[in-house]
Design a protein around this nucleic acid. Structure first.
Lengths: 374, 374
DNA sequence: ATGAAAGCGCTAACAC
DNA sequence: GTGTTAGCGCTTTCAT
């Protein structure tokens, strides 16, 4: 008889559609006022222990769940966080989403997720929806924001988090990913293996983050005195399809690069796929390096050498930064920039350039996989 | 001067934290009552055109966004849908989530997503959170529900959607995936190529959906008079790691199967990866077939032959079923079962068994890829 | 057609 | 320490 609704003698006024049990039902059953119930639920220490016990008992009996909407209405806080990603189907983002959600929920927040699909109109309506839902803050993890859309939020002094770049304003927190170091490590790794001709497949360069990655690449190459011919920078779009398209362009070149650095892992996967249809083998003929280190990277054929950008770090920083913006007494309320480290993860998609001495020796030593030479 | 807050002469009572603009601000500015504003916003046809115009103008000027929480509180409808998936990082789910979200948003609903990670405790707390947030309905797309957790919702006559199986009750809608047909096509495809010894790597068999897939496999094999030795059914867990573990077990066998059918694509990707580290080539030595047809499948090396379960269909059915449960006058309110079709997609991870006549001829014809025979 | 007013479920003053 | 009450922003009778 303690089932959720059977005994719920709902006060006549409620139970509109679902048999929702209100605070009044609990109060009635426990023989106390609704204020006491509220206090007990919110663990206000001043409530009499015996009364609190009775309240909790009643709560259990009638199956009471506090209505978050009502709470939000009165407190002015919805305890919801918005999370905007550019493409939920890019495996990097679900990993990020999961981390973000874990952390947020642990702090008592709910997460409203939105995927923009790089569509400004979508982003706009998404923002509006998030505002209407009264989220307490929004993390914009799109790696490239459409500036003007942010204006609304900014003006409302709304807690916001961006990746890489965003307006410098109070309430705006920026997550700075250390592309310079990560990409530099990747380039140095390839150079150390003996590669001199390294191409780069970028993301959509209209966005900040892809542009930053490309710049980091150029800088790293310059550092080593390596020149990058114009045609070795190909613009992709951070999808597998884009990676495939880009490698096809590269394949048309008179002189192929011996290594390819990609702006993200999905691009690299597309490259791997594109190369698979040719006679070029990875890494024997051409080395491929990705960026992100999505879970999938290690399962590629061959396992992908890539630069790790920890989505755990990213998520943690995002949630913390948001909380810092929301809860005025947060310890890090003043911190505006959050550094996100990156690091190289060497796997098997990178090796010595074909024909180089170490490559030949490696072949003799029989350590090379039977990837089918042409 | 039409910026969102600059002119917003907020009535003293509001503007708690963010400069939120309320219906009263609009009313004041338009010189009408809040009731009229409400009616205008909700496009009640009886409002005077001139007044409506003034209201919309004021809305624009003060940057008013209706507060959804308050709306929900009074209407009893939150216009939010819960979507529970088992693992957001399995690429199948983001695809599903995206579709679901698109459809839901198009109908004016917001989506609250939760990933259970196969953890009953998480699922439980997730359910509770969704209830507290007053979602109008929940789609449980976990392919394996922990029965008792549903009890709460069921008793509250809460609109619910399940995949594959669930209690037969009013307000419960079931999405029936046609495993029988899809898996049967996969098996027939392999058998047609000449395979007789086909192994199956299942998902976690404690869950309904993986069990249903396994049963479908067994049935399809029996149909063809093919016997399946006990050791040819290996339990995985629908992850790449699980697929790798399973193929390793299979590799220990005295007599290897010539083809492997996997309970989902992630498993198949794990298998591909596991096989890559051996001398066995796909599809020359062993054929691999997946299930789901995630976007990634076509980019695998080799592109994965798989059974498509359309997440578009799934999402569409889920949203429709939910709406049918929520909106009492929905045309399909009575429909309790929704069929989800499946179909085979042949790519390059399946071929003739090694040593069979067609395989030999194919080799001669030079159509085979240089995958490096041992 | 429009406005005044009663709540939706809850929290937080304010009394007692 | 506990109860009473005034709203949070909105929709929806009920008068007018």
């Amino acid at each position: 008889m303690t089932s959720l609704v059977s005994e719920a003698r709902s006060s006549a006024s409620n139970r509109r559609r679902t048999g929702s049990v209100s605070i009044r039902d609990v109060a009635q059953r426990a023989g106390v006022s609704i204020a006491t119930v509220s206090r007990a639920v919110n663990r206000i220490p001043t409530v009499n222990a015996e009364l609190a016990r009775r309240v909790w008992e009643a709560i259990d009996e009638v199956g009471y769940l506090p209505n978050t909407q009502a709470r939000a209405l009165v407190s002015g806080r919805s305890k919801m966080l918005g999370l905007i990603v550019s493409e939920i189907t890019n495996p990097f983002f679900p990993e990020l989403v999961q981390e973000f959600e874990n952390l947020a929920v642990a702090q008592g927040y709910e997460v409203l997720i939105g995927s923009t699909n790089y569509d400004p109109a979508r982003t706009e309506s998404l923002m509006r929806r998030l505002l209407q839902r009264n989220v307490d803050g929004v993390a914009v993890m799109t790696f490239g924001v459409e500036e003007d859309l942010v204006q609304q939020l900014v003006e409302r002094e709304f807690p916001l988090v961006f990746v890489d770049a965003g307006p410098v304003l109070p309430n705006i927190h920026i997550l700075k990913v250390d592309y310079a170091e990560g990409i530099r490590q990747g380039v140095q790794h390839l150079a150390a293996l003996g590669h001199r001709s390294i191409a780069f497949i970028s993301g959509p360069l209209s966005q900040r983050s892809p542009a930053a990655r490309r710049d980091a690449f150029l800088k790293s190459m310059a550092e080593l005195g390596l020149i990058v011919p114009r045609e070795h920078i190909v613009e992709g779009d951070h999808t597998m399809e884009g990676g495939m398209g880009a490698i096809e362009k590269l394949l048309l070149l008179h002189q192929l690069p011996t290594a390819i650095m990609c702006s993200n892992d999905m691009t690299a996967i597309g490259v791997l796929h594109g190369l698979y249809r040719t006679t070029h083998r990875v890494p024997d003929d051409i080395s491929v390096v990705g960026f992100d280190d999505i879970h999938l990277a290690q399962f590629m054929l061959p396992p992908l050498t890539t630069v790790q950008m920890s989505c755990k770090d990213l998520a943690r920083a995002a949630v913390e930064a948001l909380r810092a913006g929301i809860e005025r007494d947060h310890p890090k309320a003043a911190q505006k920039e959050w550094k996100i480290p990156t690091r190289l993860v060497v796997r098997q998609s990178s090796s010595f350039p074909r024909g180089s001495l170490p490559a030949l020796m490696k072949g003799t030593a029989g350590k090379s996989k039977p990837t089918g030479a042409d």
